[in-house]
Nucleic acid binder design. Structure first.
Lengths: 199, 199
DNA sequence: ACCTGAACACCGTTCAAGT
DNA sequence: ACCTGAACACCGTTCAAGT
């Protein structure tokens, strides 16, 4: 039995994969996806590191489970909205959610969950460019959130002008999303022009 | 004296900060900025870890020195070019350079080196938005390269469809840069419209 | 099946001691 | 001033042994 230093919280009942992921989510909220260790996670559920392996797997398996939970909590805007408005709202929701779980944005930028957003773009007329346009929007959003996460991680001690940075990053995010949507709208006009030239 | 396993290369002459950073650059080319250790770096120059501390500093100090070298190797396009063309070339050069030193792009996205690009945008008419527009362009470019670096790191073993991924990422990068520039061009027309309404 | 406790092969960093 | 060699406080992961 580990001592109280390494095993602070005694959990009632048996240890399950679900409880482990719960604790991993809580640790991610506290200190970010990349800043907790398997040993700290084990201590948080009152168990030995090998128990994590038994119920979930290695560190990466726990991280995957955390990401699944986080993306599951995102709700999609109304499909009747125009495509630009639809994405503007989606990406606003996305930032709000991802900022609660530092470090998740970077991983999501890589996996780029292919959702119903591709359909929204296809209906808007992006045709075979719908996939790359969707990827562009999601990746841009995730990456700018990831940049905020990184900045927070670097400035854990510096508490001056923290509010200033936060509001600047919020503005930069909105600016990035808006320029991205404008650029795609411009591209859409180009695509329609080509269609008309062909037909 | 460390044995040959931890001290493979015997460097002629004394150890200097310059030689250490040289070796750090080489290791970064090999395995990425985040994937070499201070102990491996020390072994590469044939020294003990404490020697790195003596001549350069902790790991982060070495990383900073590496980044400085990398950005120093970037050359800027001709200032007489139109702003969109100027940035299109700059960001093409930037990707080419950063891809040689995996892991540097992520760090540069954070620091966002404020170069003469801000002047280019100011002359183009972005006014007080020149700073944020410049930041948007550099951060977007660095982040998409960082995403490629991350993807490479995940797929070290998988050698199938590696070429496919590479060409897709190259296309995605170009697409992102072009949409970003289009979005800014759109914004510039908005700004000019406001100017004319005011004057 | 599930948990224990130790071990392995690493890290970054520090420091007294040598020359 | 510069290098040595060991130590400290960590990691992720594995595994024989217990129950």
């Amino acid at each position: 039995m580990p001592n109280s230093a390494t095993r602070p919280r005694s959990t009632a009942g048996r240890i399950t994969a679900e409880k482990i992921v719960d604790a991993a989510l809580a640790l991610t909220v506290e200190c970010g996806l990349d800043n907790w260790t398997l040993r700290r996670l084990a201590a948080a559920v009152g168990a030995y590191p090998a128990v994590i392996y038994h119920h979930v797997g290695d560190r990466d398996a726990v991280v995957e489970a955390v990401l699944e939970r986080v993306v599951g909590g995102l709700d999609l805007p109304d499909r009747t909205l125009p495509w630009q408005e639809w994405f503007a709202r989606l990406l606003t929701n996305l930032r709000e959610m991802l900022r609660l779980y530092p470090g998740c944005a970077r991983r999501l930028a890589l996996s780029a969950p292919s959702g119903s957003g591709v359909e929204v773009l296809r209906e808007a007329g992006f045709g075979r460019e719908s996939d790359i346009a969707y990827h562009l929007l999601i990746a841009t959003a995730c990456q700018f959130v990831a940049m905020e996460d990184d900045r927070d991680g670097v400035l854990t001690l510096r508490l001056d002008n923290t509010e200033e940075y936060a509001s600047y990053h919020a503005r930069l995010y909105e600016y990035a999303v808006q320029r991205c949507l404008d650029g795609l709208a411009h591209r859409l006009r180009e695509l329609r022009g080509n269609d008309m030239a062909v037909s």
